[in-house]
Design a protein around this nucleic acid. Structure first.
Lengths: 188, 188
DNA sequence: GTCTATAGATCGATAGAC
DNA sequence: GTCTATCGATCTATAGAC
């Protein structure tokens, strides 16, 4: 049995960019077929549940990526300057300095809050948990750590919205830079 | 000629809530008819350009509301504690402490960025302009005023996204409370 | 000016050939 | 397992009666 011409993970990633651009309801199968390189038959073979199934696969892929590249690296005791610097760098790269949106934030705000609410909640709560746990291990109180972690998420999501709204990546870059400084200052 | 049974502005406001809930692409004429109380004929009579026309009327209504209730009151020299306190109170009420989203932020992030980009840009830039002008009149530099104003917008939009994502209004309330404190501290 | 009926296109989803 | 053809439903928009 030969390997499929188009990798499944690759197709999911391509469709994810579609969803980022047009939203969940704004994305049609016609677009999905074109972007993924898969026929409708293959799509329903891979994702029997249809569009919702595709979206959940995308959210799972994103979840895995963040687990590996953002959440897991926070599970350490290393120097805040390095650990947090790395996190914010990764965030900046992942969101292309604000040009690329957060699909979970997008789903939460507009499109598909109810449909994917458990995935959305899990994503954000695990990020907050990972970050605040790290801050606690650095000596901050539970309350302060949580508040700071929420503040970081607000800065990232707000930065993404404002970067999109004003077509200006500086807003995002500035927002996450300030968020980082607040954390480092609190740990001093 | 009798007055129309359903006020046009009232219908627009009702449809706006639909868009907030389901997004632009997620909202259908069937829902619009039901929510507005208008027939399809009336809708196309009021808004010949169809759905896009309706959305633009909504954005205009929102724009007017903010002009009157947020932007204009900033054009004063009164005490920051009062002026800014009032702005953040109005914001908190308008967005129902995070339960009600910002339609322009929603459009910017997900649905309809290109379609309404000029309306979106204008809304945010005028808010930033109004706020930073007030801050300048209170003695801050142009750069600092602008940075602070952007920070406020990031906090509001990020707070809204996170409140929706985590189903927790505290995030929003906390975010705008901090944003207010940062402004007042800078003006001290 | 507002309604109903319906057009024409596109939607998500399925069936059946290969 | 992947394709094309096509389904019924729903979409936005229009036409025509009143």
């Amino acid at each position: 049995m030969p390997a499929p011409k188009i990798d499944k993970a690759q197709a999911i990633a391509a469709i994810a960019e579609l969803f980022r651009e047009h939203g969940y309801h704004g994305t049609s199968y016609a677009q999905i077929i074109k972007a993924s390189g898969l026929g409708k038959g293959s799509l329903y073979n891979y994702f029997p549940g249809g569009k919702e199934d595709i979206a959940k696969a995308i959210l799972r892929q994103i979840d895995c990526w963040f687990e590996e590249n953002i959440f897991a690296p926070l599970n350490t005791n290393n120097d805040p300057e390095i650990v947090l610097g790395k996190m914010f760098n990764t965030v900046d790269t992942y969101f292309a300095s604000g040009q690329r949106i957060c699909l979970l934030g997008s789903f939460a705000l507009c499109d598909a809050k109810e449909q994917f609410s458990s995935e959305i909640k899990s994503y954000f709560q695990r990020w907050i948990k990972a970050l605040s746990t790290y801050l606690q291990k650095q000596g901050l109180s539970e309350t302060e750590s949580q508040n700071l972690a929420y503040g970081v998420m607000v800065a990232i999501q707000g930065g993404l919205v404002m970067a999109q709204a004003t077509d200006n990546t500086d807003v995002f870059v500035q927002a996450i830079s300030e968020a980082k400084n607040i954390l480092l200052k609190a740990l001093k």
